[in-house]
Structures are given as structure tokens and as C-alpha cells.
Amino acid sequence: MDDPSGLAVVADGLGLKGPRGWAFRDVSADAGPGALIAVAGPSGTGRTCLLLALTGRMKPTEGRAVVGGLELPRRMAAVRRRSALAHVAGVTDLDPALTVAEHLREQELLRRRFGDALPRPRQLLRPRAERRRERRRHIDEALATAGLGLGALPKGGRTAVRDLERVEALRLSLALALLGRPRLVGVDDADLKLSAAEREEVWELLRSVAGTGVTVLAVCSEPPSDAVVVRTDADRSGGAEADGPAAPTGVEPDDSSTGVEPGDSPAGAGTETGAPAADPARTDDGPDAAPDQTGETPGAGTADKAEATGAAEAADRADDDEKEAADDAIATTGRS
């Protein structure tokens, strides 16, 4: 492949809020061109949303981000043109009925039609056979960078996607992304459902892609030691505090994130979403522990129950918010 200059990624206090709360918040990053960046954190903490935001597919709500010198969200379209996505569920899904060669041919046709700049008149005058050889070379380079050898597949290029192993499917998705010669490539769920050996194989692959000069942004659960790590769960320890008094000017505090309805007692309202669930032995105080509707402060057992309920509801909302935000991005962008 060509040796493009990767995009530097800088973020400070970046956050994205959906209709039901924050997908992620207070995320910072500082990585140079050609870096391997690992977006790490538990499922439901906005990892995919951050990936889509830094590649220009979702609009951040607060904070500052600059990708390749392009400020987000003002230059989102320019960042999209310089980046590509791989292995993102609902966005870059492979068709299990199509073969590897059919996917490559389809993506190359789409790139020629929509991805490249207008060809120069001299290029249009070249013999068709020469143009065909150039397209074949372009595909071969993308496959080599992604480490996918057609000769190693059961039926070569005629192998159906449904017959690919998990790592082979990831390599194919990455090759399709590299056909557009991006300067930044985002890979979702890089280590999902992989063994330790397969995870190391994937990280070695992503290191080699970064070695070509392309910046790699990979979502994962366990980041490698040599990656620039960006975490999406750093603000989850405070929960209610992060969405309450600390909210920046112009952003309304999100009471729903605490898991406590308006009018609850002070003991329930002070619950932190990141706190661990209370011991059931402590929360079972019998019928006398029911909330006092007269306005009196409930007992300790009621406060523990409210804490456990708020933490569980906040965790459920975090999963729902990330899925909802990803669905919005899919509806906007279609297949990348």
C-alpha cells in the first residue's frame, strides 16, 4: 500500500449525550499519527460511540476533539473522508452469503464510484487491461496489509463469509476498509469472543497496520501494554455526581442517571451510580423499612435498597444508551 500519514487524535473532556443520558463523558486522548489507540472499558460505557465520534460519524455534545488537525464536530465530514471503519456491527456487516471475492469486488466498485477524486483525463485514456491490473494490485495490497491470504482459505476467493473463522472475518473487514486508503481506521470489538492466542494475533495485525503509517483506533476489553489507552469508564465511578452538580454550563443535569425519581428521600437521592450493590442481608429490614410518605427520613435499610436499585438501573441505561446512539449513527451513515 501507499504510506499515508496517519491522523493525530487529541481529545479533552469529550462527551456525548443521547436522549436517555450520557453515552460517554470526560474522555481525553493524545496520540500522534500512526499510533495504535485502544479504546478500553466495560461493555455499555460508550466505546463504540466514542469510536464513531472520533471518526466523524457521531456528533459530540461537549468537550474538544481534533483529528488530523480537523476540529470536531465542525469538520466531521472531512474526518469521515479520511477515515474508515471495520468490524462495526450494524455498519460494516459482512453478508454471509457472499464470497470473499464478491465483497472485495463490491467494495472496490464503491470506492471507484464514490470514494476517489475525479480521475484525470489521462487516466481515463489508459487501456482497460492496465486499469484492471491496477485494481487487482490495489486489492492485493489491502489483503496483504490485513494479513488475509486467499490461498489459505478453503475455497480461495470463492469462500463464503459464513465459512470464515472469526479472525479471518475480521481480517476481511479490515481489508475492505483499507481499500479506501484511509489515514485513520476504526475497528470495533477487536478482542470480542477471542482466545488469548487469537487476541494476540489480532493485536499483532493492528500493530502491523499502524506500522504502515495509518492510525488505528480499536475498541477492546483488554488493551495491550504498548497501545495508547483511552478509557470510557473513567467517569463512571462518580455516577450521579458526574451528571449532577459537575455538569458544565448550558447542560441540564440528568436526574434519571441516578436511578431515583424526583420526590424521593434525601438518602435515596444521594445514591452514586458507580457504588456496589448493597448486601441483601442489610437491605431486608422487613415491612417497617418501607419509605415514609410523611416526609420523614427513611431508615438505613431503605437507603441501601435505593442505592442498589439506582446502580442497577444506571447500568441498564448505559447499555441502552450506547445501543441507541449506535443505531442513530447507523441510520445516518449506512454501511461505511
Rank of each mutant, 00 (worst) to 15 (best):
G6D: 05
A11F: 04
A11K: 06
D12I: 09
G13K: 07
G13W: 05
L14N: 04
L14I: 07
L16V: 13
K17C: 12
R20L: 05
G21T: 12
W22G: 03
W22V: 05
A23K: 03
F24M: 10
V27W: 03
V27A: 02
D30W: 12
D30N: 15
P33M: 10
P33F: 10
G34F: 09
G34A: 10
G34E: 10
G34K: 09
A35Y: 03
A35C: 11
A38S: 09
G41Q: 05
G41C: 10
S43L: 13
L51V: 01
L54Q: 01
T55H: 00
G56S: 07
G56M: 06
K59L: 11
T61P: 09
E62Q: 14
G63M: 04
R64P: 06
R64T: 15
A65N: 03
V67F: 00
G68P: 03
G68A: 11
G68T: 09
G69P: 03
G69H: 08
E71H: 14
P73C: 05
P73V: 01
P73R: 02
M76N: 05
M76I: 04
M76W: 04
A77T: 13
V79A: 03
R80S: 04
A86P: 06
H87T: 07
H87L: 09
V88K: 02
A89T: 15
A89P: 08
V91A: 02
T92W: 02
L94G: 05
P96D: 14
P96L: 14
A97W: 07
A97F: 10
L98E: 14
L98F: 14
A101R: 14
E102D: 05
L104Q: 03
R105Q: 13
E106Y: 15
E106R: 15
E108D: 14
L110D: 11
F114V: 08
F114N: 05
D116N: 07
D116A: 08
D116P: 04
A117Q: 14
A117D: 15
A117V: 15
L118F: 14
Q123Y: 07
Q123N: 09
R126Y: 12
P127R: 15
P127V: 08
P127W: 13
R128W: 09
A129Q: 03
